[in-house]
Amino acid sequence: MDQETVRTICYLARLEIGQNKSNKIQKDLETIIELIGGLQNIDTSDIEPLYSPLEMTATTHEDVVNSDNKKGKFLENAPASNEDYFLVPRVVE
């Protein structure tokens, strides 16, 4: 794992690592990748991935509205909002 890869995944995850920590993080990531890389030695040909321990199918909800309007509480929790909206720095599309 090189510095460039670390920068790319940091950007994808919207995280930044301070200069002083970047070498340590890179080394940590390498160690962890090495750990999980050990899986390559296991033969998994024709094995279906197990994405959930429950091998069942989903239950579904009825198409009937059942919802409280919590607008006030939601906006109150937001770091920046006005009476109607959540606010973020202006985005230029």
């Binding site: 794992m1 890869t5 670390v6 790319t8 995944i9 940091c10 994808l12 995850a13 995280l15 690592i17 993080i25 940590d28 990531l29 962890i32 990748i33 999980i36």
Partner: peptide
């Protein structure tokens, strides 16, 4: 938390 997010981001990329 950052370490794990980064590892996970990498594993899914």
């Amino acid at each position: 938390v950052k370490r794990r997010i980064l590892i996970g981001t990498y594993a899914l990329s």
